[in-house]
Write a protein that binds this DNA or RNA. Structure first.
Lengths: 250, 250
DNA sequence: TAGGCACTTGTTGTATACATAATGAATTCA
DNA sequence: TGAATTCATTATGTATACAACAAGTGCCTA
């Protein structure tokens, strides 16, 4: 019925949700802008019912805000909001690291984590790092964090972390690339990699408090990276990136 | 159209959400049970569209789980899940206390918090405490925690706390009452009240780390209370209470 | 000319109809 | 008698029609 009816296996609701999230994160829908259901119907190809379901999901996800008189608008985040989100994520990931350490992650279950860590090792050793290396880092870093969350062995915690997910390197569109031009960003990656090593070491040695403290400090690197970005680009350009940073589960 | 069309100011979606949440929390819908949309239509009085919206919201809230083949079922929680949820909440509230301390909550903004604390003081001083006092404690304690969250001055954090809200004393139906028979429960309340005092003192003195540490320990009282309940009642009886503890934003 | 009122238009909230997929039962065959 | 297959029933996913409401516009009046 619509221009793109590829992948019939995915429900209309999910497709609408993905499409709308994409529009928000790329900045096509701007913060504070009201979302018209009919317009969303046109751009997503789904009908009003699945579009409304997607809107509800995106609201619960935190990307949209309900308007009292009805409908939804794109949520706007301040710089403080983003920094707080990073702190929250760090706190929760710290707890995940503690759980992994205290509940005795087995040597075998630690293997994938160490593998991701080693892969990151290879990347950051380049000097200067290539754009491709940065891009690969984004993927590997996400995997490292996802594995750590899994190692916590706690479904409720994992759920909260997904909700809080403020992935500083998750942007697919230029945010990280812009950073790659700054040598400071490379330094941050080196430090981040070092943190990874310490956390894994702490987990192996069952040092829960140490693992937690390092993970919390680790997240603050994202805040540093953000401030770096804010200094080097205009605020307006960054808005989509800010939402990317806040966006969960991308 | 239906038997109860009271309060027309509330939307059908919200009413369906409240009705379904009530059915889940009171145990009328049991964990693992599939929720039939048509049945929900009958019991809530709303039509399928608002019912479906409510189901989606409840899933995002964490009370329901999507079934791969379609539809939703009531989520089942293990004792470990509940304990982890309590730990997560404590961790986030610890961060809230830290924020309140470090960001300099004014003396004036602390007033409502201290008022709630003083009110709790009055209650726990009774010996033995009455059932009514316990009930009042539930309300006041919820207010104290809500005010503390507000004092953090962080919307993203407040959002996460609402999601994680595992209110050990939030049960309206018997959970706390059963505990009131145990003198141990009164002791826990006395300790909890002491924690409140320490947290407020730490915030006033700008001791962020101290405020955070005490709040985290404070949440563990809920875990103690839960274990107490698990020892004194059968597991089956407790299932609704367990879900109550997990349930957010009641 | 300015303000208010009424109307029109477009929006969202709700209900229902239709299509498709899953589940269960009954019947048939081995 | 047991198992498998087919058919019927019922569930959910989707689309659309209807109703109520809000907002914006234009006209009329003071």
């Amino acid at each position: 019925m619509s221009e793109r009816d590829s992948d019939r296996s995915v429900s209309q609701t999910v497709r609408a949700q993905l499409a709308l999230r994409d529009q928000i994160l790329t900045g096509r829908l701007r913060p504070g802008e009201r979302i018209s259901e009919l317009q969303a119907v046109e751009t997503t190809g789904a009908s009003r019912t699945p579009v409304r379901m997607a809107l509800v999901r995106l609201e619960e996800e935190g990307l949209l805000e309900a308007i009292p008189s009805g409908g939804f608008m794109v949520k706007a985040f301040s710089e403080r909001d983003i920094l707080d989100s990073i702190e929250v994520r760090g706190t929760l990931e710290g707890l995940a690291a503690r759980f992994a350490a205290e509940r005795g992650a087995s040597a075998r279950s630690l293997e994938p984590l160490k593998q991701a860590m080693d892969d990151i090792d290879q990347l950051v050793r380049q000097d200067p790092v290539s754009e491709e290396a940065f891009s690969a880092y984004v993927t590997l870093n996400a995997r490292f964090h996802a594995l750590l969350t899994e190692l916590s062995g706690s479904a409720p915690l994992a759920r909260q972390i997904d909700r809080a997910a403020a992935l500083p390197f998750a942007s697919p569109s230029g945010f990280v690339m812009a950073q790659s031009k700054l040598p400071e960003a490379h330094q941050i990656l080196l430090i981040a990699n070092d943190h990874h090593h310490i956390v894994v070491d702490a987990i192996e040695n069952r040092e829960g408090s140490r693992a937690e403290a390092v993970m919390r400090e680790h997240a603050r690197l994202a805040a540093r990276n953000l401030r770096l970005a804010l200094r080097s680009r205009t605020h307006l350009d960054l808005l989509p990136a800010l939402r990317l940073i806040q966006s969960p589960a991308i």
